[in-house]
């Protein structure tokens, strides 16, 4: 199975940083008030970011 893919829809992201804080493997980080996928290979597809994003801005694809 290939590693999960995290997609940030920048047009929806408001930079609240909830996803960055609750990601257990620090895949995401803040970059100029928006979220950036910094370490995609570390993603374990726990879906915490997708679940907690208030803005429908994150999607995690398992394969």
């Amino acid at each position: 199975m290939s590693s999960p893919r995290v997609e940030v829809i920048e047009r929806y992201c408001k930079g609240c940083s909830i996803c960055v804080e609750f990601c257990p493997t620090k895949v995401l980080e803040m970059d100029a008030f928006l979220v950036k996928v910094a370490k995609p290979e570390a993603c374990i597809a726990c879906m915490q970011c997708e679940l907690r994003c208030p803005d429908f801005a994150i999607k995690v694809f398992k394969d």
Binding site: Y12, K14, G15, C16, P54, D55, F56, A57
Partner: peptide, 11 residues
């Protein structure tokens, strides 16, 4: 995007 502020729990 919806009108709610960054980090608003409504989303």
């Amino acid at each position: 995007p919806h009108i709610w502020c960054p980090g608003c729990g409504h989303g």
